[in-house]
Computed example of a mutant assay.
Amino acid sequence: MRILHTSDWHIGRTFHGSSTVVALRGVLDALVAEVRARDVDVVVVAGDVFDSATPAADCYAVLTDTLAALRDAGARVIVTSGNHDSAARLGFQAKLLRDGIHVLTDPAAIATPVTIADARGPVHFYGIPYLEPVLVRRLWPGVRTQAQAVAHAMDLVRTDAAVRGGRYLAAAHCFAAGVEATPHLERDIQQGGLDVVPTSVFDGPDYMALGHIHGRQVLSERVRYAGAPLHYSFGERDKPRGAWLVELDAAGAVETEWIDLPVPRRLVQLTGTLDELLTDERFAADEDAWVSARYTDTAAQADPMRRLQQRFRHCAEVRHEPAHRAAADSRTFTARVAAAGADDARLVDGFLAHVRGGEGATADEGELVREIIGERAATEATA
């Protein structure tokens, strides 16, 4: 049986204020084309289908069209909910969906698999939605953490699979031990802090399809994250986008292949002085990319975002990271003013050094300051 493992579509997510719906639709169309070309039997989507519990109407259209296209391509589809989804909203129409599309969002039904047969017999697919401990505690008294919730769910899966016999897979949405997260992107899976699930919890299934981490991760030959199909952060820019193709044989052994998906627009981080970023030819190839710019001028520059967007129209982030920083001065500004003396020009120079982190007035600025101070003194003398 051929199974495609994907996750974390995050339909409706924005990228630095820009909608990603059109770009994601194109990537999902490419995923459908891969499913058709490779004769995939089952597509597993391991949570975070939407980016919000209250997605906009166009987000539902993307999901509906993609699920229908996957089914038309010949695959059965199994979808679980993640921490960004509303399980109730995602699952409300589960019984109304066309045959072959299964949305599994009910923790009480974890031990009831979707069973799909191939020429070698049945394969049982167990969907574990995101398990919020506060909400599942009424079902499973004593559960206090997400790690405990996932462990209990996996116990239910293994118990049922042992009775049914045969091959089986499970999908879950969680933060597993040993993964590399993208800083500031994958939000805490539990309010108050990350609740890490030990990898030993996933023992048993022939394959474990995980969601939540946006970069592909291999925890073992049979426990993997597929990551997100689209880049949602500059921190992800060097991570490939795609899905896992899993070949399951008659004995339950798996062979996996990574399938690359297209990147609609590259993400790059560029570093240099503001003048270099605006004029240097070495950045010419990046003019149509999403750009995170780090300009290294000692002093902060005026209106850098607007100026950079004249060259890089998709510049989404600008940071001032001086190449050289003056040694830290522990004195308060008041103490610096007192040490500078009563000369107005020196006071202005000291203030500029304070706000710029070390560099005072430039020669042109110093001349302008002295000219203004001179004009002020002349006005006061004739008043």
Rank of each mutant, 00 (worst) to 15 (best):
L308G: 09
Y295N: 04
E221L: 06
F125S: 01
H152L: 09
G166V: 04
R137V: 08
E380P: 01
A46T: 04
V114F: 10
Q217R: 00
E276C: 02
V114D: 09
V254Q: 11
A147W: 10
H214S: 01
P262G: 02
A302W: 10
S233M: 02
S292L: 03
R120H: 15
Q301S: 02
A338D: 11
V77R: 08
L131D: 03
A162Y: 04
D275Q: 13
E257A: 13
V22N: 05
Y168R: 07
R266L: 04
D58Y: 06
V49I: 14
V44T: 10
E287S: 12
L219Q: 04
V77E: 07
R164N: 12
L156I: 12
D303P: 07
S52W: 01
A285W: 10
G366S: 14
D106M: 00
K95P: 05
P322E: 00
A340Y: 01
H84E: 10
F15E: 00
Q309V: 09
D364V: 13
V246K: 00
A88I: 12
L352R: 08
D155P: 07
M305P: 06
L308T: 07
A119N: 01
D118K: 00
D155V: 15
V197A: 01
M154F: 15
R336I: 12
V348F: 14
E281F: 04
T66L: 02
E367N: 12
A285H: 12
E317W: 08
R120Y: 05
A243V: 03
V369D: 00
R222T: 14
D65T: 06
Y295H: 04
T382Q: 15
R237M: 13
F283K: 12
P322A: 02
Q148V: 05
R224N: 04
E365D: 13
L97I: 02
A300H: 07
V223R: 00
A342P: 14
T66Y: 06
Q148C: 09
R222D: 07
A209G: 01
G166K: 06
T334A: 15
V27P: 04
L156V: 09
W140S: 14
Y126P: 03
L270R: 10
V157G: 11
A87P: 07
A181M: 08
A328P: 01
E317Q: 14
V44D: 07
E371R: 14
F15W: 00
A162H: 15
F333D: 08
G26E: 15
F283V: 08
T199S: 03
T334C: 02
D280Q: 10
V45N: 12
R25K: 10
A177P: 00
G100L: 05
A117P: 03
H16D: 03
V35W: 00
G193C: 01
A243C: 10
E317A: 11
L245P: 03
V218M: 01
L4V: 08
